[in-house]
Measured scan of single mutants.
Amino acid sequence: MQIFVKTLTGKTITLEVEPSDTIENVKAKIQDKEGIPPDQQRLIFAGKQLEDGRTLSDYNIQKESTSHLVLR
């Protein structure tokens, strides 16, 4: 499924993911596309910070959901 990640600069990154993917996996995909190390990434969805060990389905992130990327 596709999800979108919006950066603070207003850029939207499109990612191909599975509901069973962990947040860690998603951060690795963002690193592949954008070159941002996962330890600098914070992903926010529905006002919550997403934890590495959880999956997209844990957070009820469905296709075409948009989460926000904040850099630390």
Rank of each mutant, 00 (worst) to 15 (best):
D39G: 10
T9H: 13
G35A: 05
L8F: 13
K29F: 05
F45A: 04
A46K: 15
D58C: 03
G47S: 04
G35D: 05
T9F: 12
A46S: 09
I44N: 05
G10K: 03
S65H: 08
Q31F: 15
Q62I: 12
I30Y: 02
K27A: 01
N60F: 06
R72S: 13
T66Y: 09
I13V: 05
K48D: 06
K11W: 08
D58W: 11
Y59H: 03
D39K: 10
G35E: 03
Q31V: 04
L43C: 01
S57L: 12
D39V: 09
P37A: 09
L50V: 04
A46R: 14
T66D: 09
S20Q: 10
Q49W: 14
L8H: 14
E51K: 08
T12D: 04
A46I: 06
Q49D: 14
T7R: 06
Q2D: 05
L15S: 00
V70I: 14
Q40D: 09
G53E: 09
I36V: 07
T7C: 08
I23R: 00
K6H: 15
N25K: 14
I23H: 00
I3S: 01
I61A: 02
S20F: 11
K48A: 09
K48V: 15
T55Q: 06
K63E: 12
N25S: 15
E51H: 08
L15R: 00
V17T: 03
L8C: 15
K27W: 03
R42C: 14
T9V: 08
L43M: 03
E51Y: 07
E24K: 11
Y59V: 03
P37K: 07
K48N: 09
K33Y: 08
A28I: 13
D39A: 11
A46G: 12
Q62A: 10
F4N: 06
L15T: 00
G53L: 07
T12W: 13
E24S: 12
G35S: 05
I30V: 05
K63F: 11
E64K: 06
F4Y: 13
E16M: 13
G10I: 02
P19R: 06
T14S: 09
E16N: 12
L56T: 01
D32W: 10
K27R: 05
S20C: 09
E51G: 03
T7Q: 06
S65L: 08
K63G: 14
A46D: 14
E18N: 13
I44C: 13
D52N: 10
A46W: 09
D39C: 13
R72D: 12
M1F: 15
T7E: 03
E24T: 08
K27G: 01
M1L: 07
Q49L: 14
R42G: 06
P19Y: 07
E51Q: 10
E51R: 08
G10D: 04
E18A: 12
Q62M: 12
E18Q: 13
Q40E: 12
E34V: 14
L50G: 02
T22C: 04
D39Q: 11
T12K: 07
E16K: 09
K27T: 01
D21C: 06
E24V: 07
S20V: 05
T14K: 08
E64T: 10
K33W: 06
G10L: 04
R72T: 14
D21Y: 08
E24C: 07
T22W: 05
I61L: 06
L50Y: 01
K63A: 15
T66W: 08
V17D: 00
T22D: 03
N60P: 03
M1K: 03
Q62F: 14
L15W: 01
G35F: 04
Q2G: 04
S65F: 10
E64L: 12
D21M: 10
K33R: 10
V17W: 02
G47C: 07
N25H: 12
L71G: 05
E16S: 11
E18W: 12
K33N: 05
T9D: 13
L50P: 01
I23A: 02
N60H: 10
I44L: 12
S57T: 08
P38F: 12
L69P: 02
Y59A: 02
T12E: 06
Q62V: 12
V17Q: 01
N60Y: 06
L56R: 00
D58P: 00
Y59L: 06
D32S: 12
D52S: 07
P19S: 09
L56S: 00
P19K: 06
D39P: 06
T22K: 08
E18K: 14
R54E: 05
D21R: 01
L56C: 01
T22R: 08
G47H: 04
K6M: 12
L69C: 02
K11L: 09
K29H: 04
K6Y: 10
N25C: 11
K6Q: 11
S57P: 02
S65D: 09
T66M: 11
Q41L: 06
D52W: 03
I36K: 02
K11Y: 12
L8W: 15
T7P: 03
S65A: 09
V26I: 12
E24A: 15
S67C: 15
Y59P: 01
D39E: 13
T7K: 04
V26T: 03
I44P: 00
I13T: 02
Q2I: 15
E51W: 05
T9C: 14
Q31D: 05
